[in-house]
Nucleic acid binder design. Sequence first.
DNA 1: CAGGATCCCAACCGATACTG
DNA 2: CAGTATCGGTTGGGATCCTG
Lengths: 123, 123
Amino acid sequence: MATKTHCLTPATNQECKVAQLTLQDTLDVVGGKWKLVLISILRGGKLKFRELSREAGISPRVLSKELKDLEMHDLVTRTVQDTRPITVEYELTPYSETLSDMIIAMHAWGKQHREKVIHKTVS
Amino acid sequence: MATKTHCLTPATNQECKVAQLTLQDTLDVVGGKWKLVLISILRGGKLKFRELSREAGISPRVLSKELKDLEMHDLVTRTVQDTRPITVEYELTPYSETLSDMIIAMHAWGKQHREKVIHKTVS
DNA sequence: CAGGATCCCAACCGATACTG
DNA sequence: CAGTATCGGTTGGGATCCTG
């Protein structure tokens, strides 16, 4: 095949494959319907389980799973408060800040895209 | 407000909600398992349906659906070639370039994250 | 309140076979 | 080759109830 492939950086097909896998790594960690939304919400500060559930509009069962995943990837911390009844606070880790560029880019794109769609619809 | 795009400091709940919806808009368009991978692959140049299927490791049925979605959002073009048998080429639109920042950020994060995980595992 | 257990439905997705 | 149709497995996720 014609190897005029041009990925993110000029590269061989091999490197293209690697780039693809790298992208998929990212999607494995923060892909899906909720993870980035939750992280985005937590950027506003720590929240309790229930608050988070309400903010995101996500059921407890799914939220619980998502938070476990995020915790496993060192993106959020889970802290049990010694109250009565107990409450649990979730907070972003310093490591989660590495996602900032991505989130900002996605947010910017969504905004831009919405405006484009509106233009198209109106015209 | 132009400086801080996120609700870190004193932002209203309203603005947080809007930010969340904007992020979800993006996820609606390019979220899921395949869309960004396909776009990433097509950055290497136009490809025929089968080539794309092989490159991504995606079944024809799913690929067909994904491409329709992408085409609908003006991210790829579908061009029928007058060959025998006919072939169809898929190519990124100029508009798809607006996703560059996002894809680059995601790629960079995946790379960085993999290295971090390796460190953790080794240590 | 946190979050696990259960039930159940819908979407997703892969494999394969088939048609133009 | 491009793409659809069919089937069947897997996953996602909402609702509800339940316990510590």
